[in-house]
Design a protein around this nucleic acid. Sequence first.
DNA 1: CTCCGTGCAAATGGTTTGCATCTTA
DNA 2: TAAGATGCAAACCATTTGCACGGAG
Lengths: 138, 138
Amino acid sequence: MNTEQVITMLRKNGHKVTPQRIAICEAVLSNKEHPTAEIIFKKISKQHPTISMTTVYHTLDLLKKLELVHEINFDNRVTRYDSNVSVHVNVICQKCGKISDYESEAIQSQWNRIVSAIKIKPVGQRLDAYVICEDCKG
Amino acid sequence: MNTEQVITMLRKNGHKVTPQRIAICEAVLSNKEHPTAEIIFKKISKQHPTISMTTVYHTLDLLKKLELVHEINFDNRVTRYDSNVSVHVNVICQKCGKISDYESEAIQSQWNRIVSAIKIKPVGQRLDAYVICEDCKG
DNA sequence: CTCCGTGCAAATGGTTTGCATCTTA
DNA sequence: TAAGATGCAAACCATTTGCACGGAG
């Protein structure tokens, strides 16, 4: 999803296009590491020194409604935003919290078998695998 | 997991056995609906009128460390506790928030294929499927 | 010109922490 | 009796809300 597509998407749904919104959209859609609102805020602050957390939260809510991002909580308290809305596995280290995404045809088809076994048609999904990563095993 | 097993588990790990702990353990381990700390607190309050949220939180943290429950956030803000630590799918309605568990040989084996495809040995997992349930479709 | 978006400041509320008292072992 | 558990009250802090100003359409 590039900048023009985001702008089109916003206009199509009757939302205004502001510099802040463009910056937030670009920041979250390009970051594959499940950033928090604060991480996005800090990234954008360099270009938009007057931006506020309020606007970041409002815009992320908007993107959530437009189905461009998913909201997920890996650890407590802080919400993370995932711009990968396709079927994938989040591999999360229990010690250091590092997150890696795995996405493949195989994962997709195994998941399809699971949902058809349950007889549902999900509108979304979340697959987490908790591990102790190599760095933390020592 | 019954009461005696919980008591044994606590003692084995050097923790004291108190009436409050027994009540909290029984409440969370018998409730399959992913209760919040407050739900557990209210359930126990009838038998233990002086119990506090502080104790509930402390005990749930303890059970988490002993791997008897998993901590999960389906919606924002409030943490839920899942006493089902086996491989299963949480089917969650996006509208009303109702949660159903699905567990089967098939799900277990498809998940095994996914983790072996990624070449990891997870210490735990979480599988969510988001749906709009029949009641909310109308 | 109108409506929506922005951002400051204040409120919210689930969870955590400090600490004095009580209980288990 | 010592180490740990309980529970009140206060602190915490990510997120939400109220509101006045500003910019997009």
